[in-house]
């Protein structure tokens, strides 16, 4: 092997080694890298019990109940297979809507209700003007997100 060939093999070896090490490390930390758990993972007992964690999913349509005269709000988070009821007191972000993604940070109580102390909206990757969204909504079959909650 010429010295240049040897250096090339060395560089490719570094890249391959780091890639394998990175893949193994990320595989090992899989759960810790997860930003949130969805309701199915919680039903399977994958979420840490008794600790704070994040719950993510869609706000179920028609599930948002606001207590008049206070900031208390209750809603149901769904991944279209399982659901988790959520209790929260505080200001909700602008994009919080029924049928939209949400990430709540808090604890799962023994009664199965998730008490959140922080609620973030998760936007999806769809960008469109309001007219396009209205015309998309007319065929009622498509599960398009509601324009407002």
């Amino acid at each position: 092997m010429t010295p240049r060939r040897r250096r090339l093999v060395l560089v490719l070896g570094i890249v391959a080694g780091v890639a394998i090490a990175g893949a193994l490390a990320l595989q090992a930390f899989r759960e810790n890298v997860m930003f949130f758990f969805d309701p199915t993972q919680i039903a399977n007992g994958e979420a840490p019990s008794g600790e704070r964690f994040r719950l993510g999913g869609m706000v179920e349509k028609g599930s948002v109940v606001r207590q008049p005269g206070s900031l208390d709000v209750q809603f149901v988070v769904t991944d279209f297979q399982r659901t988790v009821p959520v209790r929260y007191r505080g200001v909700l972000p602008d994009l919080f809507r029924e049928g939209q993604g949400v990430v709540a940070h808090g604890r799962l109580g023994p009664d199965g209700v998730f008490t959140a102390d922080e609620v973030l909206a998760k936007h999806d990757e769809n960008y469109m003007p309001p007219e396009v969204h209205r015309s998309l909504k007319t065929p009622a079959a498509a599960p398009t997100p509601a324009p407002e909650g």
């Binding site: 990320l26 899989r30 997860m34 930003f35 949130f36 998760k122």
Partner: peptide, 8 residues
Amino acid sequence: WWNSIHQA
């Protein structure tokens, strides 16, 4: 690969 708050 992971659940993320950032959109796809």
